[in-house]
Amino acid sequence: MARTTSIMLAGVGGQGTILASRVLAQLLLNEGHDVKMSEVHGMAQRGGSVTTHVRYGKDVDAPTIAPGQADFMLVFETMEAARVAHYLKPGGTIVANEREISSLPILIAREEYPDDIPERLERRGIDVRWADAYSIADNLGNIRVENVALLGAFSTVLPFAEDAWKKALTQVIPERHLKINTAAFDKGRQLGKK
């Protein structure tokens, strides 16, 4: 059976992981792949953790990624990187946003935000490429494009041309938001190349 590649996106409800996964899926379809994409709605939307599983190849079977099987991960929040780390395949790559969003136990001062996430991921032997997508979005004047900036950084780890990404962005993002999103993608991609 032809090999299937697995990409997991993880973040916090409201961070725009779904838009990023839609752009990714569109790109993969354009490139002629079979694609399956799985996400769970519901309670997760109220500030909970969210993940999207994207798998592509010739004929994709399972709609979800099992622990230890993700080739790539795109993580939108620091603590979430640790939460999903065990899904990564040995030798796999995580592109993670340097962004800390406090969860309920931290907001109500029962726990503190962990300050050792990068070290813990390093101890697991994981290749994490940290990116500050928030600053890119902030500098562009709209923090909502943080997701596409991060996608830009992630785009460098996959074997697809820049034009292919741009085409997918054009297909998924409404015309009136395209300019700032393209700018965010470009900045992110520059960051990813470093």
Partner: peptide, 15 residues
Amino acid sequence: TPVPEKVTGRPPMFC
């Protein structure tokens, strides 16, 4: 089976 990291939970909350 890979062992998950122990991380502070992120339960849903009132908006």
